[in-house]
Every structure is written in C-alpha cells, then in structure tokens.
Simulated assay, not measured.
Amino acid sequence: MKDEKLWFDHPQDSVEITTVRQRTEDVLEQAITLPFWSQDYTQLDKGRFSGMITSVASKGVQLFREAMNRSVDELASAPQNSYVIGLPTIIEGKSLWRGGQLSKNTLITLDKNAELLFRTAHSSEITAAVISEQRLEDYAANVEQIDIYDLMKKVNPVEVIPHAVKSRLLSALFIGTEHLSKNLNDSMDHHQVWRHVEDSVLDSCLQALMAASENHNRHNEHRVHRHIVNCVRDITLSRHCEALTIGDLCTTLRVSRRTLNHAFKQVLGITPVAYMRNVRLHRIRAELKFSPKQVTSIANVATRWGFWHMSLFSRYYRELFGESSSMTLELARGQ
C-alpha cells in the first residue's frame, strides 16, 4: 500500500515530512512510484516483477530506498537542481550506474540535472539521498568551507570509498528511510528528529564525496557504448511499425555489427534485438494497463508495435512479464 503522511510541528518553524512505502508487482508501476522523479524503466530479465519503494522527504532533502527482483534499464531524471548521493546495498549480478560497475563499497552519485542511465542487477537495492543544490552547497560552504561544484567535478558517478565511510553513510540513510518512515506515528518531536537526520545525512554525504574525490578514474568508453544504446532506443520508438534489422541499425548509426553488439553486451548484457523487443513489449504493456478502454484488440496494439506473429508475441510477453497480455488487460479493466 502507498502511504503518504504530512506532519507539521512548531508553528513558528513548521516542517512537513512526506513518506511513501509501497510494494509493487509491475515494472511500470515501480517507475512512477518514487516521488519527484521522472523515470522510464525497461525490464531486461524474464519473469514476474516485484519491487519496493521507501521514501522520506522534507525541505529539499529526499531519502529513498528502492529494491527490485529483476534487471531493469532505467532512464531517469532526479528533481531539478538536485544532487544524488547513495550506495548500492544489494547487488546480485552486473550493474552499471552511468557507466561505472557497482560493487561492494562503491559510492553512486548523480550531478544536478544530469540524466541517470542505470542498469540494475538481477536482484538489486539502492539507498540514496537527493539533496537540492542550495542545501548541499550551503552546507558544504558553511560547515566544511569547500565548493561543492569543484568537489563534484573530481568525483566519478561510481567510486570506491573506504568501508568506514560507507558504513557511516549507510547508517545515516537507513535511519532516515527505515526508522523515520516507520515511526512518524509515534509521539516524537518531528522537527528536531528531522533536523538531526538531515544534518547526519548531509555530513555523511559530504565526507563520502571528499573520500571519493581522491580517486581519478574516468569512464569515457562507456559513454560511447551508452550513446549507441540510447540511439537504438530512439530508433525503436520512432520507427515502431518497422521490422528493424541489425543491418538497419548499423547503417543508420554508422557503426559495425561488432561495435553494436559489443556496446549492448557492455551496457545491458543482452543483444540489440532482445532490447528492441523488450522496449516494444513495454509500450504494449503500458497501453494495456493505463488505457484499457481504448484497446479494442490486443492484436491491433501488438501489430502497431511491430509484432505480426501473435504466437511469438504471446510467448515473449509472458516470458518477460510473467503473465499473459490478456491477463494484463483483464486486470486493468477490472480496476
């Protein structure tokens, strides 16, 4: 169940805290559950999806935890003019955050107004803070006397940090997301509690950034590979009625078949053909779930997205989402 709560304390200095705790059973639902974000998810693994979102937000700071049981390709935008600083807490399989491979003791960051390109592991969980530029820049200048803009230029999207620094940041994020979201009903001084949590998170994030800034690796090769993947996505969506071939993609992008396949292997771990098929299947699922009254025939929707063999379409759909397309439509019409 989705649960949003607002609390106001100290009329002279009120604080509003919004919490969300929701389990999901659909990748499209997962993409829209995290407050304040704009996200587009493409499920890569076959099978029924299960996810969890926990979010606590107040006064320009959001703390969230997101878990999923399937590998997903995420294209996302954080709230405008905000920094994202966090940790992967579960990684089962290969996972790439803006080109950097996640592992134990890695810090993940997203600069303000940058697009997030994130391929999650087969089973994954991340815990992160989203902090408005004004809050983080003021805190960095006033408390540590450093320029956050200059600091962020020295930090890659994925950096290895000392275990002690990671543990401190994880503790601060855990208290914010888990303890606070579960205990707002208790008779506590929410204003003071949030001030304490916020200060701990800001301090821990800043210490993690300073530790990460001592590393100097860059990720230029992945940027090229990710650009190829993004171009294939754009072509798939703009020419969705066409039976695109690998040759068509290579000609349009002016890359070799080997380069194309290598890019997809490095970024997503699947073939270009499988990725194009998954992107189209997600668009079909979105129409069935969110516009069921406009669907006169599943076959018509599938054909519009480039599937002409209904038996193959049905098999691909069931394998990817763990249910038939007719069940998706039936459930949507029953809501």
Rank of each mutant, 00 (worst) to 15 (best):
T109W: 00
D111G: 08
D111K: 15
R135M: 15
I126N: 07
S82F: 05
I148W: 02
S103G: 12
A172H: 05
D138W: 09
L107Y: 00
R168V: 05
N156A: 15
V165D: 03
S167K: 10
S123Q: 04
D147C: 05
I108L: 06
R119Q: 04
L87W: 02
R135Y: 13
N156V: 13
H122V: 00
R119H: 02
V155C: 09
I90P: 00
V84I: 13
S124F: 01
L87F: 04
I90N: 04
E125L: 01
G93C: 02
T106C: 02
L151G: 04
Y149H: 14
Q145P: 00
D150V: 05
E137V: 08
L151I: 15
W97D: 06
K166E: 09
G86P: 07
F118R: 04
T177K: 12
S132T: 15
S167T: 06
E92M: 08
V155W: 09
I90V: 12
G176C: 11
T177V: 13
L136I: 15
L136Q: 09
E144I: 04
K153N: 14
G100I: 05
S82W: 01
A141E: 08
Q145H: 10
T109C: 02
D150G: 04
I148L: 14
L116E: 12
E178M: 10
L110S: 08
Y83W: 12
K166M: 13
L151V: 15
L107S: 00
A114I: 09
L116F: 07
V158L: 11
E137T: 11
L136D: 04
K104A: 03
F118Q: 03
E133A: 13
L170K: 13
E115P: 09
D150H: 12
I175F: 14
Y139W: 11
T109P: 01
V158C: 13
S171R: 14
I131C: 08
S95E: 11
A164R: 12
R98C: 12
D111V: 08
L170Q: 15
F118K: 05
S103P: 01
K104T: 05
I175K: 12
S123F: 02
D150K: 15
H122R: 02
G86F: 02
P88C: 09
L96A: 07
I126T: 10
S82N: 08
I175E: 13
L173M: 07
K112G: 03
G93N: 02
L87I: 13
D150Q: 14
K94T: 07
